[in-house]
Write a protein that binds this DNA or RNA. Sequence first.
DNA 1: CGGAATCCTTGCCGATACTG
DNA 2: CAGTATCGGCAAGGATTCCG
Lengths: 139, 139
Amino acid sequence: MCAAYLQVSIVYNQYIMIKEFLEKNEDLTACPVRDIMDRVSDKWSLLILVVLDEYGTLRFHQISNLLSAISQKVLTSTLKTLEADGLIARQVYPEVPPRVEYSITAIGSSLIPAVKALTDWAEVHMPAIKASRAAFKKR
Amino acid sequence: MCAAYLQVSIVYNQYIMIKEFLEKNEDLTACPVRDIMDRVSDKWSLLILVVLDEYGTLRFHQISNLLSAISQKVLTSTLKTLEADGLIARQVYPEVPPRVEYSITAIGSSLIPAVKALTDWAEVHMPAIKASRAAFKKR
DNA sequence: CGGAATCCTTGCCGATACTG
DNA sequence: CAGTATCGGCAAGGATTCCG
């Protein structure tokens, strides 16, 4: 049972979970890391947060234009999950034709600096990683 | 052409790319963020880095035992890409039966604190996110 | 205008069997 | 022991069409 718990813990909670579990057998059922990782690392969520952070408030088709490679379906679903998580706000104006405006929330914009640590690391180390990949390939 | 370039830029480079592009039309062909995001956020890479960081050096089946939910095939391929990126080192001892030891590299362990910023954010904000999800659901 | 509904492709991941 | 080889499931993402 303990083994099963460890296993589940590791799978679903990644970084914090395993560090703490390896030190002491704590109850870590609410560890959120994997969850957030999934959100941050899907194809478009972070990018939408960034454009909203940059531009302030945007309408649906404005985001669509800025990220012209995204399909409407994916944009819709991504916006919906971001809204559900409270990272962006959705304002509907009951007009004809309809108008919907999206903006980043306080919690959403607080995520951006956290991501910045990772992007900074990536900028610094990417040359080494590319070199390593090239060397590995021709082996 | 500029539009196409913007599009490609945004798709492949996420955070830094778009921020810089929105400010000035720079050449940002080597922006690595998306790439690193993919690596960090796949199902097992980060976890392997963490156990190697915790335990020092481990053999193949030791990692397999620690992360008992991972299949051999996936463990093999994940280790291979981590090695190709230079984030872990692979040492083969020409014995019978064979012995292979994995350890984290300096660059690999430097990634962990960067991820920590994200995991810290997740720990702090997950309660609010969970509450937001629950409220969104019953709407 | 801002979606919803549908169908389809792709790629990650897992299970199983086999090997130097 | 430390892998390789093969098959297959499943969910994310994309293309297209339709709607209030």
